[in-house]
Amino acid sequence: MSALRSGTAVLTATALATTLAGCGGDEQPARSKVVTVLAAASLTEAFTDLKKQVEDAHPDVEVRVSFAASSTIVQQVNNHADADVVALADEKAGKTLKPDVLGSAAPRLFATNRLMIATPADNPAHVTGLDSLTSSSVDTVLCAPQVPCGRAAKSVLAKGHVTPHVVSYEQDVKATLAKVRLGEADAAIVYVTDVTAAGTSVRGVALKPDQNVTTRLPIYALNDDEGTRAFVDAVTSSTGRKVLTTRGFGAP
């Protein structure tokens, strides 16, 4: 069918261009020890920094990090996905990890996080605080209720006795923030660290301290391999603390 043929031609050209672009010189030292880290979406920037630090300090270790909602990570790990280190956004998510995959691994709390309202940079709905979200003209996005940031947002809203006009429940905190970054929503309740990471593309509106909640992030080492230890040590060391503090996390 010529419809398919012309479609294929377009595809072939695109694929060719991609392949050619991908042919850079990637000569890296052989890294024999691979550590697979599954981490909460809110850790994207901090753990990307830490991955680099660990790889610089251990030339034979390769760190592979995958970021997703904590609930997604738990579901994957419970279904025996390949993972050496698991870092989640709150303790409750950790409690849903199955004992048979955890083995003797115990959680270590390595950071804390707080919530904040994020709006587009120009704050079109003039959001000044939690109470602004009661207006039906303010489109708000929240994390899905099974995701840690969704749980935290729920308790913030309960504390402030606020019922927002929610247009969507997103699968993780970065997806929630993306709706605001794209100007698709007027407000989102996300972590302080996400607002920090987004820089000038969003505006952060602080919550009153008595309305806010603190989440504590646990990390699990699922085995005793060298790479696993190197990464977990880096996260819980003073250098790790420095990286996490720079990204807006609090001390546990």
């Binding site: 899905a144 247009v167 969507s168």
Partner: peptide, 8 residues
Amino acid sequence: ITFAGSFP
């Protein structure tokens, strides 16, 4: 999920 989001 990208364009319409997810609201029960």
